[in-house]
Each structure stands twice: as structure tokens, then as C-alpha cells.
Amino acid sequence: MNNFSVLFQKEWRENLRNFKILWIPLVFLLFGITEPLTNYYLPQILNAVGNMPEGTVFPFPEFTPEQIVMATVSQYQFIGMLVITLGFAGIISRERKNGNATFLYVRPISYASYVYSKFSMMCILVIGSVILGLLANLYYTNVLFGPVDAGAFVGFLGTYIVWLLFVVSVVLFSSAAFSTAIASVVSLALVLFFQFIDALLGAYWTISPWKIPMYAGYVLSGSVDKTPFTWSLIITLLLVVLLIFGAVYFAKRNISKTKI
């Protein structure tokens, strides 16, 4: 376990120095705040910038607080996931390329603690930023649109965190298995493209990791179907464990690819 704490400190310092620890939370905070603000002030914004003819009346839809939170999540699902996959695609493969891994691999460290240190650092950053952003979003939604049920919100957050765990492990696995460029393509495909396919053809099945964000929305509005929801959670968590073991295996196998 001592191995782990040393490696974790190294990760922490690295992310401190490349400012990731600062800018990723800020990005999620910004998108969390923007969504309720723009939705609330849409009529004024249109009045100010779009030169409407006199007397135009738009029937603006009345948003419920839950809809605003879900709109924020759909922003996170696109831009947030893009930031996570592209920002972390090199987390292991870059170390192989710039020779950093050589310094690590000549020491008697266990690959498991090497991968776990990366995984826990990513989890802290990603899940921490999303929680921060969603709490800011909840505050704004509360002020502008009305209260969200606290219990439903906690359930929604827990469900969404399972999805984030899945994303983190996918990125970690592809970074351990491939080079940075291929890793970013693979993780983008697995996170964004599969989600798109699932939205398109997903009516035929109910259990899949890519449906977790949707189920999170159902939890928030309090109309979730328990059986497919629980099975999706179980399968996703199993996949997370498998992907992490795969990452350890590939980190070990790809030693020969390190540049010296």
C-alpha cells in the first residue's frame, strides 16, 4: 500500500502542475451555471440580440427544475465527456512515450498500484468536478426555477457517479492498451458514439451502461423502472472492475513499448 501512496502523490503533483486540478472543475462549474441562467433569461436575451419585429410573442415553455438539471446533464454528456476523454487519453500512454514510464518500470512497483493511483486521481478529479458543477447548478435552479426534491437529487447523483466511473475506467483502459491517439479515438467511440447508437437503436434493449444517464434522469423525476435500472447498474459496475483489471494487464504487457 506504501507504493500506492507514493504513486498517488506523484499523480497529485502532476495534475497540480499542469493545472488540471483547477481547470476541469472550473469548466464543469461554468456549464453548470450557464444552463439555468440562459434558460431563465432566454426571453430577455432574444429581445436584446435578435431583432424581432414589433409585437412578436413567443410562447416560451415553462421548465420544471428537474428539466433544467437534466439539460445540464446533457451538456455534461457531450462537452464534459469530450473534456474527460481528450484530457485524460494520455494518462498512461503519454508516460510510455515521454520516457516517464521508464523511470517507473525499472523500480519494483506493482502495476496494480500504478493503475489504481491513476484511477483514484481521475475519479477524484472527474467526480469531484461533476458534483461541484451539479451543486452550483442545483443552487441556481433553486433560485430561478424552484426547489428540486433532495432525496431524488441524491439518487440521481449516485446513479450518475456510476456512469462517471464507467467513463473513467474506459479512458484508463484504452490509455493502458493503446497509444495516445488511438486511445482518444477508442474512448471517444466508446463513450460518445455508443451513447448515440444506444439513443438511436436503444428501444430494443433496456440494460446497458449507456442508458445509465437516462435512468439517472428517471430517478430525478421519480419514475424509474426498478428491474432494468438495477441490472444496468450491476453490469456497469462489473464492467468497471473488468476494465480496471484489463488496464493493469495491458500496463504490464506494454512495457516493451516504452521509449527509452
Binding site: N18, W23, L26, L29, L30, T34, L37, V143
Partner: peptide, 29 residues
């Protein structure tokens, strides 16, 4: 629309965070 009617308490955090992000990027650059 005059300056008084803008809800600064809501808009200000947004502007501040955006400025911090820009500042961090410039410092890093």
C-alpha cells in the same frame, strides 16, 4: 435595459469563474 435591472448577484459568479479560467490558461501559456 439599464444596468440596475441586471441581476448582478447571479451573473457575477459566472463572469468571475470565466475570468479565472482565462487567467489560468494565460498563466499556463
Amino acid at each position: 435595459m439599464d444596468l440596475e435591472s441586471i441581476p448582478w448577484m447571479l451573473i457575477l459568479p459566472f463572469i468571475i469563474i470565466q475570468l479565472i479560467l482565462m487567467l489560468v490558461a494565460i498563466i499556463d501559456l
